[in-house]
Design a protein around this nucleic acid. Structure first.
Length: 570
RNA sequence: CGGGGCGUAGCUCAGGUGGCAGAGCGUCGGCUUUGGGAGCCGAAGGUCGGGGGUUCAAGUCCCCCCGCCCCGACCA
């Protein structure tokens, strides 16, 4: 491909509205173009990358025995009503009507449609097990699209569905997919960790997430290097710590004027946040008040709180509500003098803390040296704290590390969540009708492009790994008006094409610096620079990843590059 | 959906107290240049997000709406 004819336009300026490196670089380097919030066009160079990602995914899915098909984007509402998700999916579902008033949605995921398909054809245990998958555009009207392709409202996803006769076989399918995913992310050169996860709205009995470490990820993973445990932070349970061994000091009431934050209170009293009892007032279901007690150095994980409460309809109280309900102010909420009948949850972190600093619901005052049993009694304990670095591993007691990451894949063992209500049944060898056991397995294809950039870039631009690069080689003609140079570049371009290298030939009439900057930005893994050295019969080969460069004779350059590319693909 | 910010040329942005619509980059024409986003000359390019209002006069002041980005709660 000659760059002078290629639809690839880079920008010298950083785009104004992009913060995450992947978002900024994909826009700046001309891979994507924004149409609306969370809606992007994928331009030719970007599409080449997407197609390569897809082909890696396809290859491994096919190899694992899964069969590709294509379901529909337009989903009739009837199917969604069968499982109840027409109502429960809420505002994230894009809904529309046809000319006759029939309701449809744009498919955000396809459990309903695939189950409908399978129930029509699969009647016997002889037809199981079965794994079907597709690669398709999905639509979700996300509350908050983010970071370019990281979370779009329209995005490309690979979704696979397994169908098995019994739990044991379903587990086998699940394991098969696990291995396939492992191979996929390795081939894509992504640093990914598999973590236990919560099943959330999709339902089912177990699930794992495949998370790529990035600073701009949305998932929080805790993992243990000594035993290999890894899980989404929201499901890592934190037990009660051992009791502190301190002699109780006499409790005292201390004036703490306008000291509202934990940090300020700790320094005001000359103590540490871990000695302070933090109390938060929540409003549940828009009406009930709830006090959550947690150690001052810890944060509430609202996913855990949701699990305990059984609802996601809760929020922190406003200043006015704190005043009306507790008669105090934020920063001075405590366990003393709480109104009767208010629900109180104690986080495990509080257990065993001695000589604690506690507020008493009276503005500008705290108690110091409050002790359990003597000054107050514990209520019911729960696990509500967000996991932090150095917390104990729930599996081996080792030390957890905590990192941000991007969820690239998620696999679920669904059980009969869909087959039961949709009556996808098969007949077993004894003639008995049974629901098919299902699993579902997603990979965010377009999101992978973002993750790749997050993990492979520097200050100058993207550094595509060879297996996903839009072109493997960029041949730069440094002086288009020098016939020696341009004819050599032309010759090398034709030779590279002939030898099966995916090559872009920068024949544009631009300055050297301009072309180098573009090459760095767009991120081609290899570059042949054709310039003054041609008069000595040499060209320069450069590797983007490492910055290494070599002078080769004009005759051998393409072959040497070809060798390096082949090595990188292996 | 709550909180914060922004909307002026293709892109990045400037336009105190209302008074002729601006710059750099990019684009087009010409000259010159070619190992790290070159230089000179010339040109084109605008419903100032939309609507209403105040005023002799609105990019600027007021009201309503729309869009985008960031932080939080949800997802691949």
């Amino acid at each position: 491909m000659r760059w002078s004819r290629y639809f690839l336009y880079t920008s010298k300026e950083d785009p104004a509205d992009a913060e995450a490196p992947s978002h900024r670089l994909l826009l700046k380097a001309g891979f994507i173009k924004q149409i609306s919030a969370g809606i992007y066009e994928i331009l030719p160079a970007g599409w080449r990358v997407i197609r390569k990602i897809e082909s890696v995914v396809r290859k491994e899915m096919d190899r694992s025995g899964a069969q590709e098909l294509l379901l529909t984007v337009l989903n009739p509402a009837d199917l969604w009503k069968e499982t109840g998700r027409w109502d429960s999916y809420g505002n994230e579902l894009f809904r529309l009507r046809d000319r006759n008033g029939r309701e449809y949605c744009l498919g955000p995921t396809h459990e309903e449609e695939i189950t409908d398909l399978v129930r029509k054809f699969v009647k016997s245990y002889r037809q199981l097990p079965l794994i079907l998958y597709q690669i398709q555009v999905k639509f979700r009207d996300e509350k908050r699209p983010r970071f370019g392709l990281v979370r779009g409202r329209e995005f490309i996803m690979k979704d696979a569905y397994s169908f098995d006769a019994d739990e044991m076989s379903a587990m086998m399918s699940y394991e098969t997919m696990k291995f396939a995913y492992d191979r996929i992310f390795k081939k894509l050169r992504l640093n990914v960790i598999m973590a236990q996860a919560s099943v959330g709205n999709i339902g089912g009995s177990q699930s794992h997430e495949f998370i790529a470490f990035t600073d701009y990820g949305e998932a929080l993973v805790g993992f243990c290097e000594s035993c290999g445990y890894a899980a989404n932070a929201e499901i890592i349970s934190l037990a009660r710590p051992p009791e502190e061994r301190e002699d109780p000091l006499p409790m005292e009431k201390v004036r703490t004027p306008d000291v509202r934050t934990i940090e300020d209170l700790a320094s005001f009293l000359g103590t540490s946040p871990s000695k302070i009892l933090k109390a938060l007032l929540y409003i549940v279901d828009g009406k009930d008040s709830l006090v959550v007690l947690i150690r001052g150095d810890r944060e509430v994980d609202e996913n855990k709180l949701e699990a305990v409460l059984g609802t996601d309809d809760f929020r922190l109280a406003t200043d006015e509500e704190v005043r009306d309900l507790l008669g105090t102010e934020k920063g001075f909420i405590g366990i003393f003098n709480l109104p009767d009948g208010i629900r109180v949850l104690w986080d495990n972190s509080i257990y065993g803390v001695k000589n604690m600093v506690v507020a008493l619901n009276e503005p500008h005052w705290h108690y110091i040296n409050a002790n359990p049993g003597r000054d107050f009694n514990y209520g019911e304990f729960f696990d509500l704290a967000r996991v932090e670095e150095d917390d104990p591993c729930p599996q081996c007691g080792g030390i957890l590390k905590v990192r941000r990451g991007l969820e690239l894949g998620h696999i679920f063992l669904l059980g009969t969540r869909y087959s039961e209500p949709m009556r996808a049944y098969y007949t077993d060898p004894s003639g008995e009708e049974k629901p098919i056991i299902m699993g579902c397995f997603g990979i965010g294809i377009s999101r992978i492009m973002s993750a790749l950039v997050e993990q492979h870039h520097d200050e100058r631009g993207i550094k595509w790994p060879v297996p996903v690069a839009p072109f493997e080689l960029d041949i730069i003609c440094l002086n288009t008006s020098d016939p020696d140079i341009s004819q050599t570049a032309e010759k090398l371009y034709l030779e590279a094409e002939e030898k099966g290298i995916e090559v872009i030939y920068d024949d544009r009439e631009e300055s050297a610096g301009f072309k180098f900057a573009d090459a760095d930005l767009v991120g081609f893994p290899y570059r042949i620079v054709v310039g003054k050295k041609v008069k000595d019969g040499k060209v320069e080969v450069q590797k983007r990843e490492t910055g290494e460069s070599w002078d080769f004779s004009i005759g051998e350059a393409v072959d040497r590059v070809k060798e390096m590319i082949e090595r990188d693909k292996a």
